[in-house]
């Protein structure tokens, strides 16, 4: 990648001051994508969203969180870029549940780049575009750099946090799906099952109703939906 482009990326991120939201905006903008998001993962599952640049990006992250499949999940698990230049093409059937929902939301091409620093894996950078087509070589190279910058930025957000606590920026700026875990607690009490099983029930309900898991969880917490 041309050196000046890298410097531009770094300058843009620092200009915006701290804050996860800025990372995604800059990523989408610099990559000429329709949207970008950064998904946090650990223990092989999505844990939440550090940021997303628009509503469709947020939905793409939601879908992967709800369904446990998609470009970010694969990028993280396989630790390599996942490139889907045309979701509508037959080959995109690799994500049976994710693909139709992502298409319906308006995404045509999706790309996932793993976030890692050395051997430490943190999640994935998610890019989408509303029309099909591959990334060109420059964009691919830029995305790798951006993913590296994003990984370090996420770690920097956690640096200096008291033991056992999340960094202030992550606590305040990221969407770590706390409502889903509150709902899991409630459903586990309603059905007298473990919180793990309660989460599976919630996911199944969201999948069957074609709704984001967050929304279903809100209904549970708001008392509008009961499982028993």
């Amino acid at each position: 990648m041309a050196c000046h482009r890298l410097l531009r990326i770094l300058a843009r991120i620092e200009d915006g001051g701290p804050g996860p939201a800025r990372l995604c905006e800059v990523s989408a903008d610099l990559m000429a994508m329709t949207g970008a998001g950064i998904m946090l993962m650990s223990g092989e599952v999505p844990r939440g969203s550090v940021c997303s640049s628009n509503e469709v990006s947020a939905l793409i992250e939601d879908l992967q969180y709800t369904l446990g499949e998609g470009p970010c999940v694969d990028a993280y698990r396989q630790d390599r870029p996942i490139l889907e230049a045309d979701l509508a093409a037959r080959g995109a059937a690799r994500w049976a549940a994710f693909t139709p929902e992502a298409l319906a939301a308006g995404a045509r091409a999706v790309f996932g780049f793993p976030l890692h620093v050395g051997a430490v894996r943190l999640g994935a950078l998610n890019l989408y575009r509303d029309r099909p087509g591959p990334l060109d070589d420059d964009q691919h190279a830029d995305a790798l750099v951006l993913a590296g910058v994003a990984a370090r930025a996420v770690l920097a957000m956690q640096a200096g946090a008291p033991p056992g606590r999340l960094g202030t920026e992550l606590e305040g700026g990221a969407d770590l799906r706390f409502v889903v875990h509150q709902a899991s607690g409630m459903v586990s009490a309603q059905l007298d099952v473990s919180v793990g099983e309660a989460l599976i029930r919630l996911r199944a309900h969201a999948f069957a109703d074609h709704r984001p898991l967050d929304e279903v969880a809100q209904d549970v917490v708001g008392g509008r939906l009961r499982f028993a």
């Binding site: 946090l40 650990s42 223990g43 844990r47 939440g48 620093v117 430490v120 943190l122 996420v154 770690l155 956690q158 946090a161 033991p163 056992g164 606590r165 999340l166 960094g167 992550l170 770590l176 706390f178 409502v179 875990h181 509150q182 709902a183 899991s184 607690g185 409630m186 459903v187 586990s188 009490a189 309603q190 919180v195 917490v221």
Partner: peptide
């Protein structure tokens, strides 16, 4: 990253417990 995962796990457990208690 270990600290982040640990903090995240702590938060999840606290949110789950809030849900159990609220219910």
């Amino acid at each position: 990253n270990d600290q982040l995962t640990h903090a995240l796990n702590n938060r999840v457990v606290i949110e789950q417990a809030k849900g159990v208690l609220a219910e």
